[in-house]
Amino acid sequence: MRKERPKNLDLSTVKFPITATASILHRVSGIIVFIALAIFLFILNCSLSSAQDFQLVQGYLDTFIVEFVFWGALTGLAYHAVFGVRHMIQDLGYWEEMDSAALSAKVGFAITAVLSILAGVLVW
């Protein structure tokens, strides 16, 4: 006997809890950090190959797009670190209830916002 279940195909109506959003963004920030690491290692390799390449890389580092990538990578790293600590605390058995988990996610977002602003000051 097959039961017909209602289907909601309009994904714009789905509302994730803040804890789910924090968890998904933690995974996304891990991917961002991984890709940024590859970019930074490539830039480091180019800058160490010769004096001319070092001057070329130094010139690229003053462009807005590269500064924006650096800021994004630092923000992603800050988010990943803050929420990684949050996940480790949850693994120890704390903040597992929905209310405390939601509060810790909000605090994590606030800390990440402050660190993102500080990264912007550092980069620009």
Rank of each mutant, 00 (worst) to 15 (best):
F64R: 11
L92P: 05
G120Q: 09
T19A: 02
F83Y: 10
Q90K: 10
D91M: 14
F64P: 12
F68C: 11
V66P: 07
I89D: 06
Q52G: 10
I43T: 03
I111A: 09
W71F: 14
T19I: 04
L103S: 01
I35Q: 05
S23C: 02
G76N: 00
P6G: 11
M98S: 14
L9G: 11
L122H: 14
I32P: 00
N8D: 07
W71I: 14
I111K: 03
S104E: 04
S116G: 14
D62I: 04
G120W: 14
A81Q: 05
S23V: 03
M1I: 08
T112Q: 05
V66H: 12
S12V: 01
Y79E: 02
S23A: 06
F16H: 04
I31L: 09
C46D: 07
V123M: 11
F16E: 12
L77A: 07
L44Q: 07
Y60Q: 15
Q52L: 06
Y60W: 13
T63L: 11
A113G: 10
Q58L: 08
A20S: 11
P6H: 13
G120R: 13
S29D: 00
H80P: 04
A20G: 04
G76L: 04
V123G: 12
A101P: 01
T13N: 12
T63C: 03
Y60A: 08
D99V: 11
L37E: 07
D10C: 04
A22S: 07
V114S: 01
K15A: 06
H87M: 12
H80S: 10
L44M: 13
H26L: 03
V121A: 09
W124E: 07
I65V: 13
S116C: 05
V123N: 10
I89P: 02
Q55P: 03
G120A: 15
T13W: 06
I65C: 13
I89A: 04
G59A: 06
V57P: 02
L77V: 13
V121P: 05
P6C: 07
I24N: 14
F54A: 09
Q58W: 10
L74M: 13
S23Q: 06
Q90L: 08
V123L: 14
H26R: 04
L48Q: 11
G59P: 05
V85Q: 02
F42R: 08
L77T: 11
M88D: 11
V14P: 03
A51E: 02
M98E: 14
I35N: 04
L92W: 05
A113K: 05
A38G: 09
A105G: 01
S100I: 02
I65A: 15
V121T: 15
E67R: 15
L122N: 10
I35P: 00
F34P: 08
N8P: 01
V14E: 12
I35E: 09
W124V: 09
R5M: 14
E67D: 12
L122D: 13
V57T: 01
I43Q: 08
F40H: 15
A78P: 04
A110V: 15
S47L: 03
L74E: 05
A36P: 00
S104W: 01
L74W: 06
Q90C: 08
T19K: 00
A78V: 02
A78I: 13
F64L: 15
D53R: 12
G76I: 00
